[in-house]
Computed example of a mutant assay.
Amino acid sequence: MNSIDSVTLEVADTEAAARFYSDAFGLDGSRVRVRACDAPTSGFRGFTLSLVVSQPGNVDALFTAAVEAGATVLKPAAKSLWGYGGVVQAPDGTVWQLATSAKKDTAPVTRDVDEIVLLLGVEDVRATKRFYVEQGLTVGKSFGGKYVEFATGPGTVKLSLYKRRALAKVAGVPAEGTGSHRLVVSGGTRPFDDPDGFTWQPEPRQ
């Protein structure tokens, strides 16, 4: 295993969720999918998804479209030391970061997405990094016990690890949460659960 093929969000209403992701982010169901689930969940689910774009105007375009489609604002889009971004929560409960490292626009504004990043909030970053290396992933960047980014190929979903409480702070939500993550990650050749209970399954055949 060297990459994530797709992520599946488990939602109460698949039709409404698919419509939101199409209207808000232009996602076509290839890398981010939805399926029905009524497993109990409350509070922070332990992960966020990030849409990385090329310039601030694109962040604003996605942010506006998400809010118009029914998302809740967790953090308004704003400048920061690393670039520009904001955080919204989809109607199904998934937290989305919309971000760019660019400080100004250099091209016409679009809603084109350059990268999709899955950030898992974990209790022990070092231990979970070792676990994923054993599954076949290659570390791209690592900052001690705080943050890990795995190297993945183009057109796939990038995986990063962050301390759970730190990720919740970035997302603008309390760190507490119980029940299902409401997330299934597709990649590799066998199913497994990681140390924090995130479920992986092989990519389903079309």
Rank of each mutant, 00 (worst) to 15 (best):
M1Q: 09
S3D: 14
S3L: 15
S6G: 12
S6F: 04
S6N: 05
V7G: 13
V11P: 13
T14H: 04
E15N: 13
F20I: 12
Y21R: 11
S22I: 04
F25R: 01
D28E: 11
G29H: 11
G29Q: 11
R31S: 11
R31H: 09
V34W: 10
V34C: 15
V34L: 13
D38L: 15
S42H: 12
G43M: 11
F47R: 03
T48P: 14
L49Y: 04
S50M: 05
S50A: 11
L51Y: 08
V53R: 00
V53K: 00
Q55S: 07
P56H: 01
G57A: 02
A61M: 07
T64H: 09
T64P: 09
T64R: 14
A65S: 10
A66I: 08
A66N: 14
A66M: 13
A69S: 14
A71E: 09
S80T: 08
L81W: 08
W82H: 09
W82Q: 03
A90L: 07
D92W: 10
V95M: 06
W96S: 09
Q97I: 15
T100N: 07
A102W: 04
D105F: 05
T106C: 06
A107M: 09
R111M: 02
D114E: 10
G121V: 07
V122E: 01
E123T: 00
E123V: 00
D124T: 00
R126L: 11
V133N: 07
E134I: 01
Q135K: 14
Q135E: 09
Y147F: 15
V148R: 02
F150L: 06
A151R: 14
A151Y: 04
T152W: 04
G153F: 07
Y162S: 03
K163S: 13
A166F: 08
L167W: 00
A168E: 01
A168F: 03
K169R: 12
K169V: 10
V170I: 11
G172A: 03
G172N: 06
A175D: 04
G177F: 02
G177A: 02
T178L: 12
R182I: 05
V184N: 10
V185C: 05
G197Y: 08
F198V: 06
E203L: 13
P204F: 08
Q206V: 15
